[in-house]
Amino acid sequence: MGTQDTGQGMSAPDSDWIHAMLERYEKPLVRYAAQLLDGDIDLARDAVQDTFLRLCREERTEVESRIAAWLYTVCRNRVFDMKRKESRVIALAEGESFERASTDPTPAHAAERRDNLSHINAALSLLPDNQREVVRLKFQSGLSYKEISDVTKLSVTNVGFLLHTALKTLRTQLKTELGLVPATADGATTHRRTL
């Protein structure tokens, strides 16, 4: 895929591609790894570094067509290796560590956003691990059902089930933030009063 026989060019050094992938996936991967590692940013960085070093050793044509799933899978395996080997997982308080690492300019709505985020994170923390992970992979990393299935080794059906269950729970828990209310059909007025 992606091969175009134009006869006038050739493969650029793959470093360009690696750079593009690094730019595209670095932050989301560190965030993902940190979540799996209970907020340990340093370990997460190591895992992501290892992931990209492994990418350097892969044949681009082998992985390019499934790069997102590949990166998340490798990163995830690396994280579980780490968890297994290093039982010393020093958990930083999640909020604190993320705050420190944030490079984003503080937008005007930072307060509200943080508020929403902390509600979401609180709600997520109540979910079982596997549900929380698929929710993050789906909504934070933007993976498809199939990609999530590749990464987590769960079946696509199972991914669908976990997401459905998780979303239904989150919908209830985030009712206020979402502004969800008992549906008033577009147009139906419940209460009438005449003068």
Binding site: A101, L117, F139, L170
Partner: peptide
């Protein structure tokens, strides 16, 4: 709605990045 909300908010969650030496190594 829930999905849109999660996508918007989680997508904007600050993400840590690699430190300079790690990027350099890569």
């Amino acid at each position: 709605d829930t999905a849109a909300f999660l996508q918007l908010e989680l997508g904007a969650e600050p993400s840590p990045e690699l430190d300079a030496t790690q990027k350099e190594a890569i």
